[in-house]
């Protein structure tokens, strides 16, 4: 086929092939084009658009965000929900993962836990509206056992959003943690047990140092999800008050004020905060590794 082609063409083609670029490699092009067009380009466009405010100077959107308490307070409010939820989910997931690791039949449990992740936040919000309500089964049960005397208010405030993030976030955090825990070579633990190390000491000196990198990534992925909470903050929280999270601010700017420039600026701030926290956690992980081996704290 290529006999008729001149020497120079052949050499270019062969040079490319030698570097790994041949017909098969070209199969990635549609996927790469899609990602560039629908992920990278919108990000760059959004970044550019955030410096093209409706009125004012180049940085007017950012100046407005950090001057208006209704906008800048969303950062603290979101962190105030996302950080405790993520820590709680992670701290609960570790002991549970260590128990479930010993289970013979994990599949039914993982199947049940995958359910809230698959059904998604909207359905969990609708379910909790019923379940956590003043006449819902949770309040009724608590009153039946005499734990409370009148219904606790768990909806349209901080706790509604918090609990919905536990319902969807805990299974996610747990399944990630479980995959890291079961990924550790059991021979290491057996060796420690043979040498007389007790369970607590095996955890501290064998598992924890090996788990820290995985736990750091689990924290990042769970945090980023909790930080971008949207439907449950609207449906279960107080979207004008304590649970006015940053994604609500971005959504309102775009689809209620039609100020795409401000919305892009808020989305960029949101992405930047996520990046900063993830970067910080991963940097801490690096520190932990270089530190003394007997540190033993999570």
């Amino acid at each position: 086929m290529s006999i008729a082609v001149d020497d120079e063409h052949i050499s270019t083609r062969m040079r490319l092939r030698a570097r790994g670029w041949d017909g098969v490699t070209l199969l990635i092009l549609p996927a790469v084009a899609l990602m560039l067009g629908l992920f990278i380009y919108p990000f760059l466009y959004g970044f550019w658009l955030s410096f093209q405010p409706k009125a004012g100077s180049l940085f007017a959107n950012y100046a407005r965000f950090f001057a208006d308490p209704y906008l800048y307070e969303t950062v603290a409010k979101t962190l105030w929900i996302a950080v405790p939820v993520t820590l709680l989910n992670l701290l609960a997931a570790i002991p549970v993962a260590f128990r479930v690791r010993l289970m013979q039949r994990q599949r039914w449990l993982t199947t049940l836990l995958v359910l809230p992740i698959t059904l998604g936040t909207v359905l969990v919000a609708e379910g909790l509206l019923n379940y956590l309500g003043p006449q819902g089964w949770l309040n009724r049960t608590l009153m039946l056992f005499g734990i409370i005397s009148s219904p606790v208010k768990l909806l349209h405030n901080y706790w509604g959003v918090f609990l919905s993030l536990v319902i969807t976030g805990f299974p996610f955090t747990f399944l990630l943690t479980l995959s890291y825990v079961t990924g550790i070579d059991p021979a290491l633990e057996q060796a420690a047990a043979t040498l007389g190390a007790k369970a607590a000491s095996r955890f501290r000196h064998i598992f924890l140092p090996l788990l820290v990198p995985g736990l750091a990534i689990t924290f990042c992925l769970s945090f980023v999800q909790a930080f971008s909470v949207f439907p449950s903050a609207v449906l279960l929280g107080a979207p004008a008050g304590p649970t006015r999270v940053i994604s609500i601010a971005a959504y309102q700017a775009a689809f209620e004020e039609y100020d795409y420039s401000l919305a892009s600026a808020i989305a960029m701030i949101m992405g930047f905060i996520q990046l900063a926290i993830v970067g910080g956690v991963l940097a801490l992980r690096g520190l932990f590794y270089r530190g003394p081996a007997g540190g033993g704290k999570g």
Partner: peptide, 27 residues
């Protein structure tokens, strides 16, 4: 450039949809 392309495929799975959804919807 394989590592860079891998990163290009990993990013949309790590960044939550609402963060890139707003610029994407704008475009």
């Amino acid at each position: 450039g394989k590592k860079l392309i891998m990163l290009l495929f990993l990013l949309p799975m790590l960044v939550p949809p609402i963060t890139y959804g707003i610029p994407l919807a704008t475009v």
